[in-house]
Measured scan of single mutants.
Amino acid sequence: SLEELLKLARHALRHGEEIHVLDRVITDEHEIKRLIEELERLI
């Protein structure tokens, strides 16, 4: 769900981890922040 993805993204950002989204691995902090902003808009 989007909520789950948002939780994962926030966790990854906090802990400096990578996040796997739709067969992509996002490691860049700015990309993760952008993902979080997009998800928050959708929810």
Rank of each mutant, 00 (worst) to 15 (best):
S1P: 09
S1W: 12
L2I: 10
E3N: 07
E3K: 07
E4W: 10
E4K: 11
E4P: 03
L5A: 05
L5H: 02
L5R: 05
L6T: 01
L6F: 01
L6C: 02
L6N: 01
K7M: 10
L8P: 00
L8I: 10
A9Q: 01
R10Y: 14
H11V: 06
H11S: 08
H11L: 05
H11M: 04
A12G: 06
A12I: 03
L13N: 04
L13Y: 05
L13P: 01
R14P: 02
H15S: 13
E17K: 13
E17F: 12
E17M: 14
E17Y: 12
E18Y: 07
E18G: 14
E18W: 05
E18C: 08
I19V: 13
I19S: 01
I19K: 01
I19P: 01
H20F: 08
H20L: 10
H20M: 12
V21K: 03
V21S: 05
L22D: 12
L22P: 06
L22F: 12
D23W: 01
D23Q: 06
D23H: 05
R24G: 06
R24V: 09
R24E: 06
I26D: 01
I26T: 03
T27S: 14
D28L: 10
E29Y: 14
E29S: 14
E29H: 13
H30V: 13
H30T: 12
H30M: 13
I32K: 08
K33Y: 09
R34N: 12
R34Y: 09
L35H: 04
L35G: 00
L35K: 01
L35N: 00
L35M: 08
I36L: 03
I36K: 01
I36N: 00
I36E: 00
E37C: 02
E37H: 13
E37I: 14
E38H: 15
E38W: 14
E38Q: 15
L39Y: 04
L39V: 07
L39D: 00
L39G: 00
E40G: 03
R41H: 09
R41D: 06
L42A: 10
L42S: 06
L42K: 11
I43D: 01
I43S: 02
I43F: 06
I43V: 07
